[in-house]
Every structure is written in structure tokens, then in C-alpha cells.
Write a protein that binds this DNA or RNA. Structure first.
Length: 424
RNA sequence: GGAGAGGUGGCAGAGUGGUCGAAUGCGGCGGUUUGCUAAACCGUUGUACUGGGGUAAACCCGGUACCGGGGGUUCGAAUCCCCCCCUCUCCGCCA
């Protein structure tokens, strides 16, 4: 959410943001409505002030005086409730508009309509040239008995999977490797609730707008998280932190649940796009300062890159264009890892900064050295998401004999094993 | 799932219809005292919105709202009524 005052004073900046992000919000209506409500509120305050002042006389009056005053105040009281009703009638529309206004994208966000117009910033590592016909991760997973999507479909429907044997162990290994890297980098590891309330979903700006992508509990109130960003970012919601606590670095570990509505027929093979996966997510809460945000954005991007380098995987970093940016982000860098079966790079990480967009919704604040209360800035990025990361891991590290070499950094987490070979 | 208790300021904890944004204690901040520290004493200390003064800052003076959330009664609600959420205790069930 943006500061209503900012919207009021900079309607053109907001309209530009809508254009750049291809998001349709009636900014003029919002400003008009805001003005109307402010007028009503001002009148209402005057009425309430009078009401309060005169009510104070009540205890000192005689019985007759009380009766007379009571009759007078009844008139005032009716006017007050009239104004309150008028406000209440307008509130839902204003709130709806306010929640839908997008954050202002940074100037360095490229123009563009969708992910085809994202701008590549750098490539790291060279895609491997195979001297044999490489298998894709489904063939590898099946022949090595690491993965079973057919039986998963039987009991859980499409976009499901079982990980087996070294496949299961490899997932835990890569997650734990990633988490350990973050802990060593000063992040607090967090295992989080997977079911959260609507406040957390709205606060992190997944709602409204993301209803189609998130699983909602119907018998009970609650939503299944699509990422631990939700509970981790909301962890300090409603609090006023001390500036000396910032930045707060947290690494959330959770399963993630996504409906993938509207993606029928897209990425159906294998474990690229699935309903449930495991992810370690990095979140930073920092001061309300654009430069500081930028600095930590680079930091969290760096953590992801370091991890991919240690996993010996080629990747590229793209600057996500306006049309592919979400409503809440100021800027987003995607990291895409080389996947031989796609003969291309596939998104494995997404690093965003939000300025105070989420913090404002969450009531996430801090008191600075001058005693001023300010909204924090929030940022987040994937550390590792599995099993998607198993795709490049298996495919890039496969050998001619059908085995897969375990990259060195994961071996301590795989009981020292160097290879995954055929069974039996 | 059943029965009961409770949710008040950073924390603890009073307050059962008006003079309560809210006693008191702790903590925080400023000061006095002190060779230094501690102690003691004095003062100060919520958030948001809003009107005015001031240089759009600092700051000053007013107003409104907020005592888990929402609704109701009333001239007036932290206080009474209804609904919801959360926490705790006991019982049941289960890992």
C-alpha cells in the first residue's frame, strides 16, 4: 500500500506506475473519494468536539438541566451518526482502490509488457556441451528411481510428485546446504506456520489479487502459504522495532503451496511447475531508505548467486520489466538457471524489494534515533526452491553412463557420496 | 469437542457509565546528587489522523480516534449487551 497522502500529492506518478506495470486502477476516482471522505471526517470531528465538550457539563447539572441538555445533545448525536454512516458507506470502495494501487517501480526498471522483455544483466557459467545425448530430469529421475510422478498423479492429481531414494535425500541436502549458507551469512533460520490468516496474506500483498493462486481453507479460516515470505515478513507486524535491531535478516524454511490456476498445459512435464515444493527464503527488514534497500537487494541477490556457483550451475540474472513486475515490487531481479532439457534458462530465484509497501500494510515499523516512527523496508529472495532446482542439478551433472555426479558442496549432506548411480 | 478464566500503554497491573488516553510500579529518556559506578531524588515518556502558528524542518498550541476485532444500547462506553478472534486452566480425543 502506498501512503494515501503520497497518492493525493502525486497522482501522476501513481498513474505512470500503473501504466508501466500494466495495472488498471482508477487513480482519479481514488483521489476524489479520498478528498470527499476527508471533508466528511473534518466536519465530523467538529461535531464530535462539540458533543464531547457539552457532554462534560452533564454531571454538574440539575435533573432538569440534564434532561434539557440530553435533548439538545440528541440532535448532535444524530448528526454524528449520520456522518459516520456516510463514511462507512464510502470506506469499502476506498480501501479496495488503495489495496490495488501498485507500488512505484524504480527508474531502472525496464519498460516492457511481459517476461519476454526482461533485460539480461549477466550470464555466469557456461552451459555444458554434452558429448552424448543428455537425458532430461524425468528420464534421469525414473531410471535412477529418484522420482515418480505417475503414481503421484494417481493419489494426488497432476503437478504432484514423489521423491525417492537419493532424490529425497538430495532435496534435503540442497535445502540444508542453502540454509547453512544463510545462517553463516547472519540470517536467523525460521521454521514457520504453513497456514496463515488473511491479515498476513493481505499484509504481504498476496491478497487481494492472488486469490486464484493460493489454497484457501474452507472449513476453517486460513490460507496455505505460497512462500515463507508471508509468515516471515509478517513476523514483526504490528510492532515498533528499535532502529538498532535493523537490519533483521531471516531465512524461512517451508513447504509452499500454489494452485497454478490458469497454467493448464504449461510446463506439464516433470517437476518444473508443481503444487507443492520446499523453499528456503531470505527476508530482510531494513530502514526506510531507498539506498539501503538497494544495498540489501544486492546482498540477497548475491547469496543466491553464490549458492548456484557452489552448486556448479550456470545461470543468468535478469532485470524484470514493468509489465512482469508484481503490484508490490519496486524492482525485481530473477535468477534463471540453465536447464538442458529446456535448452534454456528457467527461473529458480526471484529477488524483490518493496520499500514500505508491505510494511505499511503490516504495520511493521521502527523508531529511529530521533524518536521518529517509520515504516520499515522489506526485501526477499529465494535461497533455494526444490524440487525445481533438482532439474538443473540432475541434468547438468549427469554422466554418459546415466549416473549423476553430486557437486562437492552437497557431499557432506549426502554422507560423502560423490555419485548417484543406477540401482542394483 | 466440553467446562471455566482472561485479553488495558514497551512490560506488569488498577480501573464496572461522564471530570479516563487511562492510577500505580518497572523499563526508557532528560536532569540533580556523586571522584567514577550504583543508589536516591526531580521531571518526562503511546500511536494515527487532523486544524492553526512557525521556513514544507525542528518545535509550539488545539481537535478527533484508538483499552483484542466488529456491531449494539446511551446525550455519553475501557466500563453494559451481542457476535467473532486469541491466550490460559481443567476434561475428552490424538500425535
Amino acid at each position: 500500500m502506498l501512503d494515501p497522502k503520497f497518492i493525493r500529492e502525486n497522482p501522476d506518478v501513481v498513474k505512470d506506475a500503473c501504466r508501466k506495470k500494466r495495472i488498471d486502477v482508477d487513480v482519479d476516482r481514488l483521489v476524489a473519494l479520498d478528498g470527499e471522505m476527508r471533508d466528511i471526517r473534518r466536519k465530523l470531528e467538529t461535531l464530535k468536539a462539540e458533543q464531547n465538550a457539552r457532554s462534560k457539563q452533564m454531571p454538574s447539572l440539575s435533573a432538569e438541566g440534564k434532561a434539557a441538555l440530553r435533548a439538545e445533545l440528541k440532535v448532535l448525536s444524530d448528526q454524528v451518526s449520520e456522518g459516520q454512516n456516510a463514511l462507512k458507506a464510502l470506506e469499502p470502495e476506498l480501501e479496495g482502490l488503495l489495496l490495488r494501487v501498485p507500488n512505484i517501480p524504480a527508474p531502472e526498471v525496464p519498460d516492457g509488457k511481459d517476461d519476454t522483455e526482461n533485460v539480461e544483466l549477466r550470464k555466469v557459467g557456461t552451459p555444458r556441451v554434452f558429448e552424448f545425448t543428455p537425458k532430461d530430469h524425468v528420464e534421469l529421475g525414473t531410471s535412477l528411481d529418484l522420482l515418480d510422478t505417475e503414481r503421484a498423479a494417481k493419489i494426488a492429481g497432476s503437478r504432484s510428485y514423489f521423491l525417492k531414494n537419493e532424490g529425497a535425500l538430495l532435496e534435503l541436502a540442497v535445502l540444508r546446504f542453502a540454509l547453512d549458507h544463510m545462517v553463516a551469512s547472519g540470517f536467523t533460520p525460521m521454521i514457520v506456520p504453513h497456514i496463515v490468516n488473511e491479515d498476513a496474506m493481505r499484509g504481504t500483498a498476496y491478497l487481494p489479487g492472488g486469490e486464484e493462486q493460493a489454497y484457501q481453507l474452507t472449513r476453517d479460516d486460513g490460507w496455505l502459504i505460497g512462500t515463507s515470505e508471508v509468515p516471515v515478513t509478517a513476523y514483526h507486524s504490528g510492532e515498533i522495532l528499535n532502529a538498532s535491531q535493523l537490519p533483521i535478516r531471516m531465512a524461512g524454511w517451508s513447504s509452499c503451496y500454489r494452485r497454478e490456476a490458469g497454467t493448464y498445459g504449461k510446463d506439464t512435464r516433470g517437476i518444473y511447475r508443481i503444487h507443492q515444493f520446499m523453499k528456503v527464503e531470505q527476508v530482510i527488514l531494513c530502514r526506510n531508505d531507498a539506498e539501503e534497500s538497494r544495498k540489501y537487494h544486492a546482498e540477497i541477490l548475491g547469496h543466491a548467486e553464490t549458492i548456484l556457483q557452489k552448486l556448479e550451475l550456470p545461470y543468468r540474472v535478469v532485470n524484470v520489466c514493468g509489465g512482469d513486475l508484481g503490484r508490490p515490487q519496486v524492482q525485481k531481479f530473477d535468477v534463471e538457471t540453465w536447464m538442458p532439457s529446456r535448452n534454456g534458462y528457467g527461473e529458480t530465484h526471484s529477488a524483490s524489494r518493496f520499500h514500505d509497501f508491505q510494511a505499511r500494510r503490516l504495520g511493521l515499523r521502527y523508531r529511529d534515533e530521533n524518536g521518529d516512527v517509520k515504516f520499515c523496508h522489506t526485501l526477499n529472495n529465494t535461497v533455494i526452491a526444490s524440487p525445481r532446482i533438482l532439474i538443473p542439478l540432475l541434468e547438468n551433472h549427469q554422466n554418459a553412463d546415466g549416473s549423476v555426479t553430486i557437486p562437492e558442496c552437497l557431499r557432506p549432506y549426502m554422507n560423502g557420496r560423490t555419485k548417484i548411480g543406477p540401482k542394483g
